[in-house]
Design a protein around this nucleic acid. Structure first.
Lengths: 358, 358
DNA sequence: TTGAAAGCGCTAACAG
DNA sequence: CTGTTAGCGCTTTCAA
């Protein structure tokens, strides 16, 4: 029964990882003392504490996070759910979450729900033991569903506002107002909204903001769509816009706007001479497409960072630096992040007479 | 000691998650039988198996992955390390890995090593208990270090070739050959290589390929750099290229190339009339920048998928579909993925006399 | 301040 | 085919 019996023929105990028990044996204390010395250093005599940490270092000890999670219930990991990992918008979000998490020494589980509410539900329940909380970006669940999950798993949502669940909002309605004012100042009196997917909360929000602002400024609005949020959808969107005789468009997002730009060029519609195009988000590429896209610059990465900070705050893991991202350590309610219009070459004065279908 | 004593005052046992023990109690079998029925269904009487699964469903059972990992030693998670999550190149890799992993029901841990070998080492040892294996993209470690880790943790590397470690190579050298031939066919006789970071394995590989091909085709080559792989680095790169009197450039990657395009326009250097520019990778944006970029299209996402398939293969978790990505289920050695040149508007005939510094 | 002991939820021999 | 029995590595009472 001696442990030597179970040692591989090679002799050296190569395969096994170092455990707190090994450290205990090496230092002559009990495993529980090692555990304390490593996780709650103040609860242990300073000298033995040093001795233990020393031994841990020498033996190359690395805590088994599974075991730790099993007893403590905390994983030090958070799940970030995105609806389509293909969408550059999420790259910026992920950047932000990843950055803030790694700064705190936490792990990020990235989950692509592929636009499916079922996949999202499944992920959310699987997560319960894998992560201490989750960030939902562009959830396809109902507010009620989100709220119900939030009772069991700490959640922060981005661009959604279910009652009682902390959320990070990107203030695109504010951006829409700036965009319309910009177009008005260029002489436009008609604005076409190129809608995104019906399932998108932001889409409705932007449209309503547009209607509101337009009324106030005496601008006529129309709407085409829905269009899927891909560059490729931009072609159909551009055709629809031309067909509607539009001279100024605000697109649901930059992907669609960039796709429109290409299609309009193909069709010989000049931007901005014949048609102004405004995008939304200012994703990677918006500044170097042709022509460079006027768009509502969203602090996307910051939204990711703020979401993690709120989440870690709720989890009692105060993020390292308090920075200035999150006003007074807010961890509940909704945080709205301002958007601003970045004017580039895709907008210009309204043509004297609207462009006619070719 | 009855469990009722520990139930919250509310009465209902709201907070606790369902465990196999609950299912065992509900169905009158032993916990181990429940475990079997759920993980190895064939090892259990079909009727009781059904009964157990039924009960599991009704009670809303979700396995605790931590506990499972602790006993089985398998986490059903893999870590994907990227050196800079900011780089769009990795977005495509992550897309591929994420897709292949979720298809297999596995979890992806995303780790950004931020170009630091230390961070990479730390992540790699932390991973040991968090994941069953890892994919290293653009590792900053030495071949020896990688090989040593590979002895303990199943690893697949992308764009590296340490002996004995399975790797996925994107055949950019092949792409370089096509690029040079294309430039030659346009009349160019001088090609400038705009180098990426010295720490990049691919960078040296591309340069050597260029030298080799150039010699064979009687083309003169020169080199400027190193340049960091960011769009912003393109400005300095463009200035260096103009200063060198170049009429044709091959850039380390599309980020630099796209940045060059902007700067060249600013400086009044026409592309491709005055200077041809070829990028590498064909990242998001290469097709809609101005002018659209001729580039070596790399199957980046596929590289991610293949890496995961090799890894899962080694881990004994055969990926769902055998597809055609991975020739005959190869899980060792190196897989080279072909690259092809995608010609867009950033390349054209050599000017009769080289552009001179302005 | 430290040690002993009891699990966390699950899997994996080993009997029966 | 199924139940019993040990743990996986760690945390956490409870005593000493």
């Amino acid at each position: 029964m001696s442990s030597a019996d179970t040692v591989p023929v090679g002799g050296a105990d190569v395969g096994r990882r170092v455990t707190i028990r090994d450290i205990a044996d090496a230092t002559g204390v009990a495993p529980s003392t090692v555990s304390r010395a490593l996780s709650l250093p103040d609860r242990v005599n300073h000298v033995t504490q040093q001795r233990i940490q020393q031994a841990a270092r020498e033996l190359g000890y690395v805590a088994n996070s599974q075991a730790r999670a099993l007893t403590s219930g905390r994983t030090r990991a958070v799940a970030v759910l995105v609806s389509d990992i293909t969408n550059p918008f999420y790259f910026d979000v992920i950047r932000g979450t990843q950055h803030q998490l790694s700064a705190a020494g936490w792990t990020q589980l990235l989950v692509d729900t592929e636009e499916s509410a079922d996949a999202e539900l499944a992920a959310l329940s699987a997560i319960a033991t894998k992560a201490d909380g989750a960030v939902l970006t562009a959830s396809r669940l109902s507010d009620a569903q989100i709220a119900r999950f939030a009772e069991r798993t700490p959640l922060v949502v981005v661009n959604r506002r279910p009652a009682g669940v902390p959320s990070v909002l990107i203030d695109t309605p504010g951006g829409v107002e700036q965009a319309v004012q910009h177009l008005v100042s260029l002489g436009h009196r008609d604005v076409l909204y190129v809608a995104g997917p019906d399932s998108s909360w932001s889409n409705e929000r932007r449209w309503r903001a547009l209607v509101r602002v337009a009324k106030r400024l005496g601008v006529r609005v129309a709407r085409v769509g829905p269009h899927a949020p891909f560059v490729d959808s931009g072609a159909a969107a551009a055709d629809a816009a031309v067909n509607a005789g539009a001279t100024a468009c605000i697109a649901f997002n930059d992907l669609i706007a960039i796709g429109m730009l290409s299609r309009l060029r193909e069709r010989g519609v000049r931007v901005p001479e014949d048609m102004s195009v405004v995008g939304c988000d200012d994703i990677f590429g918006a500044d170097f497409c042709n022509p460079p896209l006027t768009t509502m610059t969203s602090p996307i990465e910051r939204a990711g960072r703020v979401a993690i900070r709120m989440l870690l705050g709720r989890l009692g893991a105060a993020p390292s630096s308090s920075g200035d991202d999150l006003p007074d350590g807010q961890t509940a309610g909704a945080v709205a992040l301002p958007t601003h219009l970045t004017v580039r070459e895709s907008t210009g004065p309204a043509p004297s007479s609207p462009h006619r279908p070719s």
